[in-house]
Every structure is written in C-alpha cells, then in structure tokens.
Design a protein around this nucleic acid. Sequence first.
DNA 1: ATGTATGCAAAACATTTGCACCTGG
DNA 2: CCAGGTGCAAATGTTTTGCATACAT
Lengths: 141, 141
Amino acid sequence: MESKDLRKAGLKVTIPRLKILEILEANSDAHMSAEDVFKALLESGEDIGLATVYRVLTQFETAGLVQRHNFEGGSAVFELDDGQHHDHIVCADCGRVEEFVDPVIEERQDDIASGHGFDISTHSLTIYGRCTKEDCPFRPR
Amino acid sequence: MESKDLRKAGLKVTIPRLKILEILEANSDAHMSAEDVFKALLESGEDIGLATVYRVLTQFETAGLVQRHNFEGGSAVFELDDGQHHDHIVCADCGRVEEFVDPVIEERQDDIASGHGFDISTHSLTIYGRCTKEDCPFRPR
DNA sequence: ATGTATGCAAAACATTTGCACCTGG
DNA sequence: CCAGGTGCAAATGTTTTGCATACAT
C-alpha cells in the first residue's frame, strides 16, 4: 500500500489510482500500454474508464511514480519508476523487453551532452534486436 | 537526381517521390515530420496529398532511403539515411536536434545485446536536454 | 496497355478534453 | 461540504486505407 506515495504527490488516494498502481506492481517486469492496463483492470473486475487510465498514468509520470517510453509501435508504454535509471533492449519479434544499465555508456553520454553544449536532463537508449530465448515464439530454429 | 535510388528500390520515379526527396535533401540538417514535409511541398507550389507523403515516407523507410524516429511529442520525424549510423541529442526547449556517434557506446551496445542473448538489429539512443546555444529562444540567461 | 501511384475522403488509432456526477478528506 | 476525481462521449491529432482516376514504363 503506497497511499503515502500518492499523498506525497499531492494526489488523492482513490480506488482507480490504487488499482492502477497494483496492476503496475503485479506486472513490474512488463511494460504496459494504457490499453493493457485498462484491460487488466477489466479482467480483475474493476470498472475504470480508459480516459482515467490515461489521466492517472500521466499524473503518475509527472509525480515520478512511473516512466513513459515511446518504443516503436503506436502506443506509449509505462513502467513503475523505482528510481533506478535503466535502458531497454526490445525483441523485434516477440516484444520481450529487458533492462540494463551500463556505467560506461552513462558516462559517455554526459561527456557527449556537455561537448555539444547541452545540459542533459534524460536520455533514452533502446536496443532493438531479435532474442534467441527458447520461449520466443519467433525464434528461428 | 537519384532516380536510380528510387528504381533500385523498386519504386517508380514519380513527381511526388522526387519532390519529397528534394525537400528532405534541402533540409538534410533537420528532422521533419510528415506534416512538415507536406507543408514544405505546399510552399514550393506542389500539389501533393498528405496521404501520399505518409505513403512515400514509409516506402522510403522500407527501402532504406530514410530513417524514422519517434522522439517525444506526438509525431514521428524523418531524415535521409546516408548510411552513417548516428544518435541524437534533442533540446527539450527549442527542439534543436544534433547528431553524434560514439564508438565506445556503439561497442558497449553490441556487448550488452549479446550478453542478453539478442542479435542486435538496430538501436536508438536519444539524449534529451537543454541546449545552451546563444540562439536558443529558451536559453536561460 | 497495365500495373502502380496518387488524391481525396473516410476510417482507424492513440490520446485528450468537456461536463455532469461522485467521492475522499 | 467541496475541491478534486471519475465515467462517458465527443473532440483531437496522427497515420492508414478504400477507391476511382492518373501516370510511368
């Protein structure tokens, strides 16, 4: 229960907000679109509108509770922000998303930004590839 | 005139395609959305539909003539693909886009991908920040 | 000629917003 | 009670598609 996180963010503790947090926690290894969250809510019997899901996710993003990513493909995806920055590697076939952090890359980016006269605020690094996992339904055999 | 590039890509050489290539060349330092290209066409007196712009840009992307990027903000942007891979640094204030390549980062990415059991196909690294250029209209002074 | 391209308008999506009603503190 | 939150439907913005016409080869 992170009612506190919500309150700290100046947000009232409401059912929709709590349920959406729950869904995101229950799927903390996934990266869900607003539609995904909406469907998950329906499945768990919650009657929450899609518009609310969008509103809440955007508020959570602003509050620093979640991060929004624009991978390839129409819709944005969200994940809980645990405070640990990380980048992503996405399987172009099965959509699997894995996370990583590379200190060397992080450092180079700071240098590059300042070398270009930019104050870096954030960055987004996504590697696209084809995973060779056994359970990847698209794995070439 | 790169009618050859078009033909090589299996595309008929048509006015719209040539004009769109022209616009992209004339703005090779920019990163234009489909809408931007469309407006530029109108300004140069061409009567080409927006749907055609989208279709052509997508075909060009498939043919490897242009690259599509999904930066933050609603629409995708395109740039000619000169074959030289590079990443981007975008000013969150003025929208300026600069390009860079860092061999160290490139190498680390390959290592990371294989370490995760992925065959890397491409990657997208975008640094977001605030530029300190003199002509940035948002520059804090 | 003939298979492609294009233009236009309509459709399909993803996301946002207006507004009357509900709810948490 | 009352500011803020929610649901629904309508509006927006972007990109795609259907179809009849026009064009490149």
